[in-house]
């Protein structure tokens, strides 16, 4: 297939991707605003009985370990925090899309969602080490969506992983992102950006998705947020939650140090804390799948 045909096919796949639910979209719009209040999140949740039921199920799941049951939306939202409320709303409507196997990366079913979740947790944790204050919950949401492009691109990369990995090992290809471009003319960051446009995601989230492997190419104002996700993504791969053949085959952008201060011990602690939180959140979200 020629590159222009491939682009047209990929564009069609983006258009055919399932949309986010209206409630997930509204929550993303509200929480991306710097001046939003928790009450706005609670009011949105109250309007959606399905999401309310999901939140109550998660907050009362055994993995959360609460002694007393929570039965009000206000309590559930304040206990879970807005990041998990947004996370649950996204999980609910992207279950199939982000849960399918990533054949193009030899990734198993559920691997992309787990990678997104670990990255979300790690991006938020990294945000705490920023030199200037960063909206940590927005870093979580951005981490949760940063690799959505892989769900589309995977189909077009089917059967390429062995050769692509060998090219990187030989030094013929700089990294996995370059390998994707060489094979299909686009990479998962660019495809994810187009999907973000299709989903009408807030601009900051779309820019994180587009630049998460090259934060230095983003607008200066957004760079700290994008570096947080860049590092969160790397921590997920270090913690064994990659998406398959591409794991660890990206570059660390050393310029992160302009925005974050982290010692070796800080990073070790981050990895430990994120692994623990990931285990807990993954277990509590698993209650969504129980009948």
């Amino acid at each position: 297939m020629t590159t222009s045909n491939l682009h047209a096919e990929i564009a069609r796949a983006i258009q055919a991707a399932p949309l986010l639910s209206p409630i997930a979209n509204q929550l993303l719009q509200v929480t991306a605003r710097a001046d939003h209040e928790m009450k706005e999140v609670i009011d949105l949740v109250k309007c959606d009985s399905l999401l309310t039921a999901r939140l109550l199920r998660v907050v009362n799941s055994s993995a959360m370990g609460l002694v007393h049951q929570i039965s009000s939306v206000d309590h559930a939202v304040s206990y879970l925090g807005e990041r998990l409320v947004v996370g649950i709303a996204i999980a609910e409507c992207t279950n199939e899309f982000l849960g399918k196997p990533l054949d193009g990366y030899e990734g198993e079913s559920g691997q992309l969602w787990r990678h997104e979740l670990f990255t979300a947790i790690a991006s938020r944790a990294v945000a705490r080490h920023a030199r200037a204050p960063l909206p940590a919950d927005l870093a979580f949401t951005a981490g949760l969506l940063h690799d959505i492009g892989k769900a589309i691109l995977s189909e077009f990369l089917r059967g390429t992983s062995r050769e692509l990995v060998a090219d990187i090992v030989r030094g013929d290809t700089a990294d996995y992102l370059t390998g994707e471009q060489e094979r299909v003319g686009l990479d998962h960051a660019e495809v994810g950006f187009e999907l973000a446009r299709h989903w009408k995601l807030p601009e900051a989230l779309a820019q994180v998705i587009r630049h998460h492997h090259h934060p230095e190419t983003a607008e200066a104002e957004l760079r700290p947020l994008i570096y947080a996700v860049h590092l969160g993504d790397i921590l997920a791969m270090m913690g064994g939650q990659g998406t398959g053949s591409d794991s660890m085959k990206y570059h660390l952008r050393q310029e992160y140090a302009e925005h974050f201060t982290m010692s070796k011990d800080d990073l070790a602690l981050l990895l430990l804390e994120c692994s623990e939180e990931f285990r807990k959140v993954e277990a509590s979200l698993a209650s969504l799948k129980e009948t």
Binding site: I234, M238, H251, L252, L267, A268
Partner: peptide, 16 residues
């Protein structure tokens, strides 16, 4: 004990 490409000492937990 793998590491990301272009890692620095901080990110080379595998080596440590």
């Amino acid at each position: 004990g793998a590491a990301i490409m272009d890692h620095n000492d901080t990110f080379n937990i595998g080596k440590r």
